[in-house]
């Protein structure tokens, strides 16, 4: 029953990876490449590339794609559900605690410290993404020469238009789809 093994192994990855999608990559690699030899390292790098390129959370993408490569569609379902199930149980537990004890002064204090931290992390992600979208690299600060070489006016145009649309409260989904289609249109014009 390969899919049961997949479910169990990915549940372990889900339980032990802390810090988001990228953090799960070494754990998934250890499991599917080093321990079980389901995939070669080069196939695993494909998994990583595809997970980053395709929409959706990176860790879930990787689990789905790795599961698919190992055992077809049932494998991808098993790996994905396995990956998400520890999160689900833990989050429900914490959400319960939160609903009951979230009003206690000390816990409010901790949250008051964490809220600005989340804002800071969203800002950091935003700047990395600006750099990636406009200059094709997450490196920052860039040297002027690299900035000039990598600068993409088409992407800049899409980003600015999307930002204007976002300020005018256009539906998020339309902005994403529109940006994608606009990218195709600009690219085809040459």
């Amino acid at each position: 029953m390969l899919w049961m093994v997949l479910f169990w192994e990915f549940a372990k990855v889900g339980l032990f990876c802390v810090g988001g999608g990228y953090a799960s990559m070494p754990l998934i690699q250890a499991c599917v490449v080093d321990d079980y030899h389901w995939l070669t390292l080069s196939e695993f790098i494909d998994v990583f590339t595809i997970s980053q390129m395709t929409p959706g959370p990176i860790g879930i993408n990787a689990a789905t794609f790795a599961g698919m490569k190992v055992a077809g569609f049932p494998g991808s379902v098993a790996a994905t559900l396995g990956f998400a199930s520890p999160s689900f149980l833990l989050c429900l537990f914490v959400a319960r605690l939160f609903a009951r004890y979230g009003n206690i002064g000390r816990i409010r204090g901790v949250l008051n410290g964490l809220r600005p931290a989340v804002v800071a992390l969203i800002c950091a992600a935003g700047i990395s993404f600006i750099s990636l979208s406009l200059f094709g690299t997450e490196q920052f600060p860039l040297e002027a020469a690299a900035m000039k070489a990598g600068f993409d006016p088409k992407n800049t145009l899409i980003l600015v238009l999307a930002l204007i649309a976002a300020r005018r409260k256009v539906n998020v989904i339309y902005i994403l789809l529109g940006s994608g289609l606009f990218g195709v249109a600009l690219g085809m014009m040459g």
Binding site: P55, I122, A125, G126, F129, I130, L132, S133, N155, I158, L159, V160, L161, A162, L163, A165, A166, V172, I175, L176, L177, G178, S179, G180, L181, F182, G183, V184, L186
Partner: peptide
Amino acid sequence: GMQCGATALI
């Protein structure tokens, strides 16, 4: 293109 849109939204 979708990545640029997502960047604008963040």
